[in-house]
Structure formats: structure tokens, C-alpha cells
């Protein structure tokens, strides 16, 4: 962060709180293409706050949520008892020339490959898995309509059907055919579950997007894809094979760290609803298709020349194993 930006934040925050403000030890955290994150220690009067400043990237082109919208979600989740970094202040876009907000800094790490192997982190894995279930149930207890979340569109049809139709439209216009994904989309259509009441769905709740330390879960992160959808979508996403970081077997089905039964029982503790493996299975298939569609689009960002990147190029090469997995999950095998 540049000196004048740091000063602009200090001046703005002093004006907002009426207290003397100083930022120390400002350093870049790994972010992504969509936003940039800075760790900062903030002296606010007599108080010392360990904070993260989360900004829109200067060249943000994504259709994901803005920082202001993400801040509103963080506040709503925090108020509902979800373990998120405490939201502090929403920045004025005039301060940095782009949207930002400040939240408390959670302890621990989010690195998925580290979490699945390093058992000194969140030692009690069944307890962590149950807690993930409780967190999801608290997120899902937020339901529309909500004035503070009115930027989230309310889907006018079944969210899974919406995905199927959007995916087919995309594939119709794309330069390559994906017969196996067509097979999977048909399966999703043929097995469409009954529509349930809409609720807040995180839509990227997976290992790698929550933080843990030695004692357990410290924060649920990355709320930029959150939408009104079906509750079991989040459970299916978390159980998908893609987020197991090399772990295999049913004992690692939940994000490479735990069993489905523990996730479901944690979910029931808060929601009163015990999901069955078979109803979540639909959303596991859905998760593989949704990730495949995202991976194609990521690869296209490289392929089109818009954003040449080895990482994006290799993301396209994840699609075949997703396709094969989808075929196996939907009863088509050799």
C-alpha cells in the first residue's frame, strides 16, 4: 500500500471515529484477481486493533460481489452468529478511489493443503467437521427478503434449473463441445429436487476458504459468490471431491478433513434438520458441474489472451477429471 493511501485511510478513520488513528506494519496478504488484502495494526485512541483492509483490485472485471456488498454480508453473518472476521468499517470509495472495508484479523491459516496434513491445526477433526455444519446452518437461517441484502437477486425459478439453463446457453456459444458435461446437466435436470424456501447460501464454503488455528475454526472467508439459493447446495459443495487436497476415502469426504455424518449432525444441531446423504448427493453432482463450468471460464481467460496465466491455463485441464467423475457419479461407467 502506498504511503498516501495509508495516510488517506488514517485521516478518514480519524474523522469517522473522532479518535487519533495510526496504521502500523501494513503488509500485503495473498488476495486474488478480484480483490487485494492488507494486514494492518491500527492504533485507535488507546485501542490496538489487528485488522485486514480488503479492497477491490484496481482492475476488477469480475461479476462477483463488490466490497460494499461483501461487507453487508459479513455484518449479516456476524449478527447471526457465524464465525466471521468482525466487520469494522465500510470505506468511502473516495478515500482510495475504490471500495474497501476494514475487518478484524482472524488467527490461523486458510491453506487447504496444510490443513489436511498438519494435524496440529484443529486437532479434533470430527469436532471441526461438526462445527462446519453448525456454521452452514447459521448462514442458512438468513432468509429473504432482507433490506440490507437487497443487492442479491431473488431467483425466479429453481436455482439448480437456473444453473442448468445458464450452462447450456454458455456451452451453445463456446468454441468446444463438452459431451460429458451435457450428460451431467441432463442428470441434474432429470433429478431436480423439490424447491425449498430460499436462504442465504455461501456458494464457496470449502477447505481453503475458512481459517483454523490450533484450537479450531477461526473464520469463514470469501463471501463474494454468496446468493439466495437452496441450503443443501453448500453441503454438496463442501463434500465435492475437488476440495479434498489429495485426501481420499469417506473419512475425508468433507473437504479432506472429516466424515459426512459429522457434518450433517453438526448441521442438525443448529437447524433441526438432519440432511440425508442421498439428498446431498444431488448437490455434490451439481458442485462438480458448477466447478467444471467455472474452470472452463477460467481457462478461457487465458486462452482468449485477456489474461495470460499458467494457473488459469491449467485450470482448464481440471475439467476432464471433473467430467469423468460426473459420469461415474451419474451411473455411466465403462
Amino acid at each position: 500500500m502506498q504511503q498516501h493511501e495509508q495516510q488517506a485511510i488514517e485521516n478518514w478513520l480519524a474523522g469517522k471515529t473522532g479518535k487519533p488513528v495510526a496504521l502500523h506494519n501494513v503488509r500485503s496478504l495473498s488476495g486474488g484477481a478480484i480483490q487485494e488484502n492488507w494486514a494492518a495494526d491500527i492504533d485507535l485512541g488507546d485501542e490496538k486493533i489487528e485488522a485486514v483492509i480488503r479492497c477491490d483490485a484496481p482492475s476488477s472485471v469480475s461479476d462477483s460481489l463488490s466490497r460494499g456488498q461483501e461487507f453487508a454480508l459479513l455484518k449479516a453473518a456476524f449478527a447471526n452468529g457465524v464465525t466471521v472476521p468482525g466487520p469494522l468499517w465500510l470505506g468511502d470509495a473516495a478515500v482510495l478511489g475504490r471500495e474497501f472495508f476494514i475487518m478484524r484479523r482472524a488467527a490461523g491459516t486458510a491453506a487447504g493443503h496444510k490443513l489436511v496434513r498438519d494435524l496440529s491445526l484443529a486437532k479434533d477433526r470430527p469436532a471441526l467437521t461438526r462445527q462446519l455444519g453448525r456454521e452452514l446452518a447459521r448462514i442458512h437461517s438468513i432468509t429473504p427478503p432482507r433490506d440490507d441484502l437487497d443487492f442479491l437477486a431473488v431467483p425466479e425459478q429453481h436455482p439448480a434449473l437456473l444453473f442448468i439453463e445458464e450452462s447450456r446457453r454458455f456451452l451453445d456459444d463456446y468454441h468446444s463441445a463438452f459431451p460429458a458435461l451435457e450428460w451431467g446437466l441432463n442428470w441434474l435436470e432429470d433429478h431436480l429436487p423439490a424447491l425449498e424456501p430460499l436462504c442465504l447460501v455461501h456458494r464457496d464454503f470449502r477447505t481453503g476458504n475458512y481459517m483454523v488455528d490450533g484450537s479450531g475454526l477461526t473464520a469463514v472467508l470469501d463471501w463474494e459468490f454468496t446468493a439466495w439459493s437452496q441450503p443443501l447446495e453448500d453441503l454438496g459443495w463442501l463434500c465435492a471431491r475437488c476440495w479434498r487436497f489429495g485426501q481420499s476415502g469417506d473419512e475425508h469426504a468433507v473437504g479432506g478433513i472429516g466424515k459426512r455424518d459429522d457434518l450433517f449432525s453438526g448441521y442438525a444441531e443448529v437447524s433441526g434438520r438432519l440432511p440425508s446423504a442421498s439428498e446431498v448427493y444431488y448437490w455434490e453432482v451439481f458442485a462438480h458441474l458448477r466447478w467444471a463450468m467455472i474452470a472452463i471460464k477460467q481457462g478461457e481467460r487465458h486462452l482468449s489472451g485477456a489474461e495470460p496465466s499458467l494457473e488459469l491455463a491449467l485450470t482448464a485441464h481440471i475439467v476432464p477429471e471433473l467430467e469423468l467423475h460426473i459420469l461415474r457419479m451419474t451411473g455411466l461407467e465403462g
Binding site: 459431451p179 460429458a180 450428460w183 485441464h317 481440471i318 475439467v319 476432464p320 477429471e321 467430467e323 469423468l324 459420469l327 455411466l332 461407467e333 465403462g334
Partner: peptide
Amino acid sequence: LLWQLTLQRVAESA
């Protein structure tokens, strides 16, 4: 055929 085509893509990519 769909299975074989997909298997072949995986053999190259993953």
C-alpha cells in the same frame, strides 16, 4: 464412447 472419450482426456490432462 462417451466414457472412452472422457477417459482419454483424463489420461492426458490428469
